[in-house]
Simulated assay, not measured.
Amino acid sequence: MRVMVMVKATKDSEHGVMPTEQLLTDMGKYNEELVKAGVMLAGEGLHPSSKGARVLFSGKKRTVTDGPFTETKELVAGFWLWQVRSMEEAIEWVKRCPNPMIDDSEIEIRPVFEAEDFGAEFTPELREQEDRVRAAAAQQAGKIN
């Protein structure tokens, strides 16, 4: 199963406080462990919400709101995408993670939808389209990296 592992933002991360050299070193070692174990598919840190935007959908209307956003505890400061055997395995990996923030922090783990989760509505044609999109995205990611 794939899971999205989200590092929740803090007041410091929202104010642009950068990680220490020690934390970057510890996270680098942790990420290497994840890769060696075949768990990590992707992972990145995110800029503060002050550099972001939200788009609200209401019928056909779209409303853009520029950051920053006030509810820090609801924001994400970084993420990983992991391939694990179970939610229990993901939890065990997160428990081994260095504390990603200077003070208290929180990491949320959520399963990623897979094609079979959508049932009959995900027709063979839609599956083929999804496969094409994923292949093109992977190819594009290879050009960027």
Rank of each mutant, 00 (worst) to 15 (best):
R2V: 08
V7S: 04
K11H: 13
D12C: 03
D12M: 04
E14S: 05
H15I: 02
P19M: 07
P19D: 07
E21M: 12
M27S: 00
Y30L: 00
Y30Q: 00
E33I: 08
E33T: 11
L34S: 07
A37H: 04
M40W: 07
M40D: 08
G43Q: 09
L46R: 10
G52P: 07
G52K: 05
V55T: 14
L56E: 14
S58C: 14
G59K: 11
V64R: 08
T65L: 15
P68C: 04
T70G: 14
T70I: 12
V76M: 09
G78L: 01
L81S: 07
W82F: 12
Q83K: 15
M87S: 02
I91W: 05
I91D: 08
W93M: 00
V94N: 03
K95M: 08
R96P: 05
R96T: 00
N99W: 01
M101D: 05
M101W: 03
M101L: 11
D103H: 14
S105L: 02
E106I: 04
I109Y: 04
I109H: 02
I109V: 10
F122H: 12
E125H: 04
L126P: 01
R127H: 07
E128M: 12
Q129L: 15
Q140Y: 15
A141M: 15
A141S: 12
G142L: 09
K143C: 01
